[in-house]
Amino acid sequence: MSTLGDVKPTPVTLGGARGGPNVRTLRGDRWWVSPAVTVGVLTSFVAYATWAAFQNANYYVGASMHRDLISPFYSPCLTGSCVPGSHPGFVFTWWTISPAILILIFPLGFRLTCYYYRKAYYRGFWQSPPACAVADGHKSYSGEARFPLILQNLHRYFFFFGLILNVILTIDAVMAFRMPGEGLGVSVGTLVLCVNAGLLWAYSLSCHACRHLCGGGVDQFSKHKIRYRVWKTLSPLNAHHMQFAWMSLIFVGLTDLYVRLVASGVFHDPKLF
Protein backbone atom coordinates (compact mmCIF):
# COMPACT_ATOMS: atom_id res chain seq x y z
CA MET A 1 0.00 0.00 0.00
CA SER A 2 1.43 3.38 -0.91
CA THR A 3 1.66 6.26 1.54
CA LEU A 4 1.83 9.99 1.01
CA GLY A 5 5.59 9.76 1.42
CA ASP A 6 5.79 7.59 -1.71
CA VAL A 7 4.15 10.24 -3.87
CA LYS A 8 6.80 12.09 -5.84
CA PRO A 9 6.10 15.39 -7.56
CA THR A 10 5.75 15.20 -11.31
CA PRO A 11 8.65 17.02 -12.96
CA VAL A 12 7.52 19.90 -15.14
CA THR A 13 8.84 19.99 -18.66
CA LEU A 14 8.98 23.47 -20.07
CA GLY A 15 8.17 23.90 -23.70
CA GLY A 16 6.12 21.24 -25.43
CA ALA A 17 3.17 21.76 -27.72
CA ARG A 18 1.19 24.76 -26.55
CA GLY A 19 -2.56 24.79 -26.45
CA GLY A 20 -4.41 25.83 -29.56
CA PRO A 21 -3.28 27.10 -32.93
CA ASN A 22 -0.12 29.14 -33.38
CA VAL A 23 -1.79 32.41 -34.33
CA ARG A 24 -1.44 35.95 -32.99
CA THR A 25 -4.91 35.91 -31.47
CA LEU A 26 -8.24 34.16 -31.76
CA ARG A 27 -10.11 37.26 -30.66
CA GLY A 28 -12.62 38.49 -33.18
CA ASP A 29 -13.77 41.58 -31.30
CA ARG A 30 -12.37 45.08 -31.81
CA TRP A 31 -9.58 44.67 -29.25
CA TRP A 32 -7.45 47.27 -31.08
CA VAL A 33 -9.82 50.16 -30.33
CA SER A 34 -8.64 50.71 -26.76
CA PRO A 35 -4.86 50.83 -27.48
CA ALA A 36 -5.55 52.99 -30.56
CA VAL A 37 -7.54 55.51 -28.49
CA THR A 38 -4.76 55.51 -25.87
CA VAL A 39 -2.13 56.23 -28.51
CA GLY A 40 -4.28 58.95 -30.07
CA VAL A 41 -5.04 60.80 -26.83
CA LEU A 42 -1.54 60.51 -25.34
CA THR A 43 0.13 61.56 -28.59
CA SER A 44 -2.21 64.55 -28.91
CA PHE A 45 -1.54 65.60 -25.34
CA VAL A 46 2.24 65.25 -25.66
CA ALA A 47 2.20 67.22 -28.93
CA TYR A 48 0.09 70.01 -27.42
CA ALA A 49 2.07 70.12 -24.14
CA THR A 50 5.38 70.28 -26.01
CA TRP A 51 4.12 73.08 -28.22
CA ALA A 52 2.70 74.98 -25.23
CA ALA A 53 5.84 74.48 -23.15
CA PHE A 54 8.07 76.00 -25.82
CA GLN A 55 5.78 78.98 -26.51
CA ASN A 56 7.06 80.82 -23.42
CA ALA A 57 4.26 83.34 -23.86
CA ASN A 58 0.55 83.81 -23.09
CA TYR A 59 0.66 81.72 -19.92
CA TYR A 60 -0.36 84.44 -17.46
CA VAL A 61 -3.39 86.71 -17.26
CA GLY A 62 -2.41 89.57 -14.96
CA ALA A 63 -3.59 92.85 -13.48
CA SER A 64 -3.96 94.57 -16.84
CA MET A 65 -6.90 92.23 -17.53
CA HIS A 66 -8.13 92.35 -13.89
CA ARG A 67 -7.36 88.67 -13.38
CA ASP A 68 -4.70 86.51 -11.74
CA LEU A 69 -4.70 83.31 -13.81
CA ILE A 70 -1.61 81.23 -14.54
CA SER A 71 -1.31 78.15 -16.70
CA PRO A 72 -0.57 74.94 -14.76
CA PHE A 73 2.21 74.21 -17.27
CA TYR A 74 4.09 77.31 -16.07
CA SER A 75 3.35 77.30 -12.35
CA PRO A 76 5.42 77.97 -10.31
CA CYS A 77 7.18 80.25 -12.76
CA LEU A 78 10.72 80.25 -11.47
CA THR A 79 12.98 81.64 -14.18
CA GLY A 80 14.26 85.08 -15.07
CA SER A 81 12.11 85.20 -18.19
CA CYS A 82 8.81 84.92 -16.28
CA VAL A 83 6.39 87.76 -16.99
CA PRO A 84 5.83 90.25 -14.12
CA GLY A 85 3.34 88.99 -11.54
CA SER A 86 3.65 85.35 -12.53
CA HIS A 87 6.62 84.37 -10.36
CA PRO A 88 6.56 83.82 -6.62
CA GLY A 89 9.32 86.34 -5.74
CA PHE A 90 12.50 84.43 -6.54
CA VAL A 91 13.83 83.16 -9.86
CA PHE A 92 16.56 80.94 -11.25
CA THR A 93 18.41 83.28 -13.56
CA TRP A 94 20.64 80.48 -14.91
CA TRP A 95 17.67 78.83 -16.63
CA THR A 96 17.40 80.37 -20.08
CA ILE A 97 14.82 78.22 -21.90
CA SER A 98 11.08 78.16 -21.24
CA PRO A 99 10.15 78.03 -17.52
CA ALA A 100 7.60 75.32 -18.34
CA ILE A 101 10.34 72.80 -19.07
CA LEU A 102 11.68 73.21 -15.54
CA ILE A 103 8.26 72.40 -14.07
CA LEU A 104 6.89 69.79 -16.46
CA ILE A 105 9.71 67.34 -15.70
CA PHE A 106 7.99 66.42 -12.44
CA PRO A 107 4.41 65.76 -13.59
CA LEU A 108 5.88 64.03 -16.63
CA GLY A 109 7.92 61.73 -14.36
CA PHE A 110 4.90 61.16 -12.11
CA ARG A 111 2.67 60.14 -15.01
CA LEU A 112 5.36 58.20 -16.84
CA THR A 113 6.00 55.99 -13.79
CA CYS A 114 2.31 55.80 -12.79
CA TYR A 115 0.99 52.25 -12.51
CA TYR A 116 -2.04 53.11 -14.65
CA TYR A 117 -0.15 54.89 -17.43
CA ARG A 118 2.33 52.03 -17.52
CA LYS A 119 -0.53 49.74 -18.49
CA ALA A 120 -1.75 52.28 -21.05
CA TYR A 121 1.52 52.89 -22.85
CA TYR A 122 2.86 49.35 -22.59
CA ARG A 123 -0.31 48.25 -24.35
CA GLY A 124 -0.71 51.18 -26.71
CA PHE A 125 2.80 52.13 -27.73
CA TRP A 126 4.99 49.18 -26.81
CA GLN A 127 2.49 46.45 -27.80
CA SER A 128 3.55 44.40 -24.82
CA PRO A 129 0.87 43.09 -25.09
CA PRO A 130 -1.43 45.21 -27.30
CA ALA A 131 -4.46 43.62 -25.62
CA CYS A 132 -5.27 40.61 -23.46
CA ALA A 133 -4.69 37.31 -25.28
CA VAL A 134 -3.12 39.10 -28.24
CA ALA A 135 0.50 38.15 -28.88
CA ASP A 136 3.26 40.38 -27.59
CA GLY A 137 4.81 42.60 -30.23
CA HIS A 138 8.35 41.63 -29.23
CA LYS A 139 10.27 38.39 -29.41
CA SER A 140 11.97 38.77 -26.03
CA TYR A 141 10.76 40.32 -22.82
CA SER A 142 12.56 41.35 -19.65
CA GLY A 143 9.85 43.38 -17.91
CA GLU A 144 10.89 46.16 -15.58
CA ALA A 145 13.88 44.32 -14.19
CA ARG A 146 16.60 46.24 -16.08
CA PHE A 147 17.64 49.79 -16.83
CA PRO A 148 15.87 52.00 -17.85
CA LEU A 149 12.53 50.46 -16.81
CA ILE A 150 13.86 49.65 -13.34
CA LEU A 151 13.54 53.42 -12.78
CA GLN A 152 9.75 52.89 -12.62
CA ASN A 153 10.45 52.18 -8.96
CA LEU A 154 11.03 55.91 -8.43
CA HIS A 155 7.29 56.53 -8.74
CA ARG A 156 6.86 57.43 -5.07
CA TYR A 157 9.44 60.23 -5.31
CA PHE A 158 7.64 61.74 -8.29
CA PHE A 159 4.46 61.41 -6.23
CA PHE A 160 6.01 63.62 -3.53
CA PHE A 161 7.01 66.25 -6.12
CA GLY A 162 3.49 66.00 -7.53
CA LEU A 163 2.05 66.81 -4.11
CA ILE A 164 4.18 69.97 -3.92
CA LEU A 165 2.91 71.06 -7.33
CA ASN A 166 -0.66 70.29 -6.25
CA VAL A 167 -0.26 72.65 -3.29
CA ILE A 168 1.08 75.37 -5.60
CA LEU A 169 -1.74 74.88 -8.12
CA THR A 170 -4.26 75.00 -5.28
CA ILE A 171 -2.78 78.34 -4.19
CA ASP A 172 -3.06 79.50 -7.83
CA ALA A 173 -6.74 78.49 -7.80
CA VAL A 174 -7.33 80.44 -4.57
CA MET A 175 -5.47 83.45 -5.99
CA ALA A 176 -7.73 83.31 -9.04
CA PHE A 177 -10.58 84.58 -6.84
CA ARG A 178 -8.59 87.84 -6.53
CA MET A 179 -9.37 90.16 -9.39
CA PRO A 180 -7.04 93.17 -9.36
CA GLY A 181 -9.06 96.38 -9.57
CA GLU A 182 -12.38 94.52 -9.14
CA GLY A 183 -12.01 92.99 -5.66
CA LEU A 184 -12.91 89.35 -5.05
CA GLY A 185 -15.03 87.39 -7.48
CA VAL A 186 -15.56 84.23 -9.44
CA SER A 187 -14.89 84.00 -13.14
CA VAL A 188 -14.91 81.07 -15.54
CA GLY A 189 -11.11 81.06 -15.21
CA THR A 190 -11.42 80.75 -11.43
CA LEU A 191 -13.63 77.69 -11.82
CA VAL A 192 -11.31 76.18 -14.43
CA LEU A 193 -8.31 76.48 -12.10
CA CYS A 194 -10.31 75.09 -9.16
CA VAL A 195 -11.52 72.05 -11.12
CA ASN A 196 -7.99 71.49 -12.43
CA ALA A 197 -6.53 71.54 -8.92
CA GLY A 198 -9.29 69.23 -7.66
CA LEU A 199 -8.71 66.68 -10.42
CA LEU A 200 -4.96 66.72 -9.82
CA TRP A 201 -5.53 66.09 -6.11
CA ALA A 202 -7.89 63.23 -6.96
CA TYR A 203 -5.29 61.75 -9.31
CA SER A 204 -2.50 62.06 -6.73
CA LEU A 205 -4.50 60.76 -3.77
CA SER A 206 -5.76 57.77 -5.75
CA CYS A 207 -2.16 56.85 -6.65
CA HIS A 208 -1.05 53.32 -5.75
CA ALA A 209 2.17 54.59 -4.14
CA CYS A 210 0.14 56.99 -1.99
CA ARG A 211 -2.16 54.16 -0.91
CA HIS A 212 0.84 52.03 0.02
CA LEU A 213 2.68 54.77 1.90
CA CYS A 214 -0.42 55.83 3.83
CA GLY A 215 -1.26 52.37 5.12
CA GLY A 216 -0.93 49.60 2.54
CA GLY A 217 2.49 48.64 3.85
CA VAL A 218 1.07 47.81 7.29
CA ASP A 219 0.42 44.13 8.08
CA GLN A 220 -1.47 44.54 11.32
CA PHE A 221 -4.02 47.30 10.85
CA SER A 222 -5.39 46.92 14.39
CA LYS A 223 -2.14 48.34 15.71
CA HIS A 224 -2.12 51.29 13.28
CA LYS A 225 -5.72 52.50 13.30
CA ILE A 226 -5.08 55.96 11.87
CA ARG A 227 -3.12 54.56 8.94
CA TYR A 228 -5.89 51.96 8.50
CA ARG A 229 -8.51 54.71 8.28
CA VAL A 230 -6.45 56.61 5.72
CA TRP A 231 -5.91 53.41 3.70
CA LYS A 232 -9.64 52.63 3.90
CA THR A 233 -10.46 56.13 2.68
CA LEU A 234 -7.96 56.06 -0.18
CA SER A 235 -8.80 52.55 -1.42
CA PRO A 236 -12.14 53.51 -3.09
CA LEU A 237 -10.37 56.47 -4.73
CA ASN A 238 -7.64 54.11 -5.93
CA ALA A 239 -10.27 52.00 -7.67
CA HIS A 240 -10.96 55.02 -9.92
CA HIS A 241 -7.32 55.90 -10.56
CA MET A 242 -7.68 55.31 -14.29
CA GLN A 243 -10.60 57.73 -14.59
CA PHE A 244 -8.79 60.40 -12.56
CA ALA A 245 -5.66 59.87 -14.68
CA TRP A 246 -7.51 60.61 -17.91
CA MET A 247 -9.71 63.40 -16.54
CA SER A 248 -6.81 65.25 -14.92
CA LEU A 249 -4.61 64.84 -17.99
CA ILE A 250 -7.20 66.22 -20.39
CA PHE A 251 -8.31 68.98 -18.06
CA VAL A 252 -4.81 70.23 -17.34
CA GLY A 253 -4.36 70.65 -21.09
CA LEU A 254 -7.71 72.44 -21.38
CA THR A 255 -6.76 74.70 -18.46
CA ASP A 256 -3.58 75.76 -20.24
CA LEU A 257 -5.57 76.31 -23.41
CA TYR A 258 -8.15 78.48 -21.60
CA VAL A 259 -5.49 80.65 -19.94
CA ARG A 260 -3.61 80.87 -23.24
CA LEU A 261 -6.69 82.04 -25.15
CA VAL A 262 -7.55 84.66 -22.53
CA ALA A 263 -3.94 85.86 -22.24
CA SER A 264 -3.60 86.18 -25.99
CA GLY A 265 -6.79 88.26 -26.16
CA VAL A 266 -8.96 85.80 -28.11
CA PHE A 267 -11.73 86.42 -25.55
CA HIS A 268 -12.15 87.97 -22.12
CA ASP A 269 -12.51 85.74 -19.04
CA PRO A 270 -16.18 86.28 -18.11
CA LYS A 271 -16.88 87.20 -14.48
CA LEU A 272 -19.74 85.16 -13.05
CA PHE A 273 -20.28 86.98 -9.73
Binding site: K119, Y141, A145, G217
Partner: peptide, 30 residues
Amino acid sequence: AMCNITKCCTEVCPEHIKITDNGIIPLKER
Protein backbone atom coordinates in the same frame (compact mmCIF):
# COMPACT_ATOMS: atom_id res chain seq x y z
CA ALA B 1 9.70 42.94 -11.89
CA MET B 2 8.68 40.95 -14.98
CA CYS B 3 5.06 42.02 -14.45
CA ASN B 4 4.40 45.25 -16.36
CA ILE B 5 0.96 45.88 -14.87
CA THR B 6 -1.08 45.44 -18.03
CA LYS B 7 -3.90 44.06 -15.89
CA CYS B 8 -5.06 41.22 -18.12
CA CYS B 9 -5.02 38.93 -15.08
CA THR B 10 -7.60 41.16 -13.41
CA GLU B 11 -9.69 41.33 -16.58
CA VAL B 12 -10.07 37.57 -16.90
CA CYS B 13 -10.43 36.61 -13.21
CA PRO B 14 -13.83 34.87 -12.83
CA GLU B 15 -13.83 35.72 -9.11
CA HIS B 16 -13.29 39.42 -9.91
CA ILE B 17 -10.22 39.60 -7.68
CA LYS B 18 -8.31 42.84 -8.21
CA ILE B 19 -5.10 40.88 -8.73
CA THR B 20 -3.07 43.83 -9.96
CA ASP B 21 -4.38 46.69 -7.83
CA ASN B 22 -4.65 44.79 -4.57
CA GLY B 23 -2.03 42.06 -5.04
CA ILE B 24 0.82 42.75 -7.43
CA ILE B 25 1.13 46.55 -7.17
CA PRO B 26 1.14 46.56 -3.33
CA LEU B 27 3.74 43.80 -3.52
CA LYS B 28 5.85 45.88 -5.92
CA GLU B 29 5.60 48.80 -3.49
CA ARG B 30 6.79 46.55 -0.66
